[in-house]
């Protein structure tokens, strides 16, 4: 999908398609199908979360309170803003506004990097506080069910980790797009890569919109 559109020196139309409409529709459908795959991938994690939260809701709520609501909320705001910038970038690419496209892509990359940095800083905090039950690291839990609390943090690291991995992949793709945009590509008929990357970026945002309440907000504060 991303790689299917040739560089701007050649025609925007790949040889297997008859016209641009067909190609654009195919690109979009392809990305939507890929997102449905992603949905099922995260679905497995959401199921595991639901099963274990149902087993012991009190412990999950208590463990949730150990997460830092400030950074979580800030990250939500950052990510939602980046969704806006990527949507505007798609518009800029389609309406052939090169400077705007470069600016908006840069903004999206900046916001995305900020999100990932904050996430890793939170991971570090958890490590320092002994709340990282991975690979035999010490885990301190004073509450009644340490094993179940460890499960919460396992799921926290897994779900946000897989999410952060998706963010990093998105950032790499955005960087490639930025280079192309600086070289004068991705405008008008060639905008499809920006559009499908935008779709992907929105999806990663939506996943976070579910992760945030499931992980940060379930504990009464």
């Amino acid at each position: 999908m991303i790689g299917e559109t040739p560089t701007p020196t050649v025609s925007a139309l790949a040889h297997q398609f008859d016209d641009l409409t067909q190609q654009n529709e195919a690109d979009d459908l392809g990305m939507w199908l890929f997102l449905s795959t992603e949905l099922m991938f995260f679905g497995g994690l959401f199921l595991a979360y639901t099963v274990y939260r149902r087993q012991d809701e009190a412990t999950f709520a208590a463990a949730s309170q150990e997460l830092d609501l400030f950074w979580g909320t800030l990250n939500t705001a950052i990510l939602l803003t980046s969704s806006l910038t990527v949507a505007l970038a798609t518009h800029a690419a389609e309406s052939r506004q090169r400077q705007q496209l470069i600016g908006l892509l840069t903004a999206t990359i900046g916001l995305g990097s900020l999100f990932v940095s904050i996430k890793f800083m939170e991971y570090h905090q958890k490590y320092v506080h002994g709340l990282m039950p991975l690979g035999g690291l010490p885990f301190h839990w004073d509450g009644p069910s340490p094993a179940h609390a460890a499960l919460f943090f396992d799921l926290y690291f897994l779900m946000t980790g897989v999410h952060a991995l998706h963010m990093l992949i998105g950032l790499v793709i955005l960087l490639v797009l930025l280079v192309k945009a600086i070289r004068g590509g991705l405008l008008g008929d060639h905008a499809a890569p920006v559009r499908v990357t935008g779709l992907y970026w929105h999806f990663v945002d939506v996943v976070w919109v579910f992760l945030f309440p499931m992980l940060y907000l379930i504990g009464a504060r």
């Binding site: 087993q55 012991d56 009190a58 412990t59 509450g143 009644p144 069910s145 094993a147 179940h148």
Partner: peptide
């Protein structure tokens, strides 16, 4: 094994 998981109503864990 995990007394706090399902506490009977009216009792403390």
């Amino acid at each position: 094994l995990r007394p706090a998981a399902k506490v009977v109503e009216g009792f403390q864990p």
